[in-house]
């Protein structure tokens, strides 16, 4: 099996940006966020979600930095269970670090 390609192959060369959401932690909040992306035909390349304190979770979304980004952020902000949306600064490479992990051959995990 080939090892992880050091140059991640994005569909095109669109730069990616990481959004950080603070959300109410309850069953269904993931559906609200993912459902919004699919029905508005926004692309989402990656998603990470963990509880951070009782009742609250943090979500990281990896999304293309295209001309629809502002609209995406506005729509996500409107969701009732999304308490805040912030754009993570340049250099936040959490997804890149994880990418190597995800690309390991199954038997090595």
């Amino acid at each position: 099996m080939p090892t992880a390609n050091p140059a991640p192959h994005k569909e095109d060369q669109t730069a990616m940006v990481q959004l950080e959401l603070t959300v109410r932690n309850h069953p269904g909040v993931m559906s609200h966020v993912c459902g919004l992306f699919s029905r508005r035909a926004y692309n989402m390349e990656g998603i990470l979600c963990m509880p951070v304190q009782p009742g609250l979770s943090r979500m990281w979304l990896l999304v293309p930095e295209d001309d629809r980004l502002k609209q995406v952020v506005t729509q996500v902000s409107k969701l009732h269970d999304v308490l805040s949306v912030e754009r993570r600064g340049a250099g936040s490479d959490d997804f890149q670090q994880l990418e190597a992990f995800f690309r390991q051959p199954a038997e090595a995990v």
């Binding site: 609209q71 506005t74 729509q75 409107k78």
Partner: peptide, 8 residues
């Protein structure tokens, strides 16, 4: 009143 409509 809906910010999501601006620039959509």
């Amino acid at each position: 009143i809906d910010p999501g409509e601006l620039d959509k």
